[in-house]
């Protein structure tokens, strides 16, 4: 019996809130989830740091999906690539859900982050990373430094996920936070 979650999302619906087609990431995300459950539901701890208009910084997020979305069974793909794409998938869920922003564009060479996110004419960077069992806080700090060295001098978000710990940190950083 799972504890009561603070928030619930349906993967197939939430990813449609993004401007670009982020459904490509779902099979990888679900593949990582299926290593921990034989059902179509899982709970993740989400830590929110500096996210505007969020009063609580610890949330339990329950993620649901449809059986027909489980399209990746034993892929001939490197483990690290699956984890990276699964982390993109997780970011495509938590960013629109907790910030109201849309993932709007993939970035180009040398931009120091992975996606542009947008809302009401405002643009920010989004750097994403995933790990199976690494130190999430340390990874978040590394990714924060990387994001804030971007050539466009824009602030933005970092989304890091540990699939073993079932934990995501989503944080917001301004250029003046540069360590």
């Amino acid at each position: 019996m799972m504890p009561v979650a603070d928030d619930q999302v349906h993967l197939e619906q939430i990813v449609q809130l993004n401007q670009i087609d982020t459904r490509w990431f779902l099979p990888f995300l679900i593949y990582r989830f299926k290593e921990h459950t034989d059902q179509q539901v899982i709970q993740f701890q989400v830590t929110l740091q500096g996210i505007p208009q969020q009063t609580s910084n610890k949330r339990v997020l329950e993620l649901h999906w449809k059986r027909e979305s489980e399209t990746l069974s034993s892929p001939p793909i490197q483990t690290s690539v699956i984890t990276e794409w699964a982390a993109y998938g997780m970011a495509c869920v938590v960013v629109p859900f907790y910030t109201g922003l849309q993932i709007a564009q993939v970035t180009q060479i040398g931009e120091r982050f992975d996606f542009w996110v947008r809302k009401d004419g405002e643009k920010f960077g989004l750097e994403v990373s995933g790990t199976l069992d690494g130190n999430l806080e340390q990874r978040q700090r590394i990714k924060q430094r990387q994001l804030l060295r971007n050539r466009n001098q824009v602030g933005g978000y970092v989304s890091v996920t540990s699939f073993q710990e079932q934990h995501t940190i989503l944080s917001f950083h301004r250029i003046k936070d540069t360590p």
Partner: peptide, 19 residues
Amino acid sequence: NETYKSNLIIEANFLKIQG
């Protein structure tokens, strides 16, 4: 066009990782 181009790049990378 920017959205369409982004979707193409994601799809291209998806195809690439599958060989």
